[in-house]
Amino acid sequence: MPENMSTKHTVVALVENQPGVLMRVTNLFRRRNFNIDSLSVGRTHRPQISRMTIVVDSARANAQRIMANLLKLVPVIDVANVGADLHVSRDLALVKVRSDDADSRNALTMIVERYPARIVDIGNLYAIVEITAQEDRVEQCIHELEPIGIVEMVRTGVVAMGRGARILDSSYERTAQPSTNGYHV
């Protein structure tokens, strides 16, 4: 399945790395009644800039509106609808499952082989499986793990990047232009 055939928008935003930015973004989505599916934030190679990947339910909002609203936030430097074009996306899950008998351990090993997944911790009672893949593959893998007995799970949410030469604008030194407003009275 091509990555952009989806009922979701995957939007990426470069933001100034300052306190409160995450709150501004989530507040925006709540008040505009957009539905966040997942949101992940992290630093970039430039210390002043963080990058967010936001997956939004497309039933309630088109990508254009989401991007225009994001760009209105002062600390948001650039946005891109990466889901609309060729892109790479990954979700990471840590899943704790039962591993207290031979059957469970065998099943685990077999499932893990067929997915971009591995066992990162194993004990007498429980094992932790790490899955790093496209979101739908992560979901399939989790689905297969379910019968063994999942007791705990955590996911990072999707991170995404456009393929090829499209680079998000991360220039930080741009300065404010003089106001264009006339406001004649």
């Binding site: 933001v15 030194e173 741009r174 300065t175 232009q177 264009t180």
Partner: peptide, 13 residues
Amino acid sequence: TAPVKLPGYRPPA
């Protein structure tokens, strides 16, 4: 005196 830095603020003209 340096201009303020607002990298994410670009009203269209």
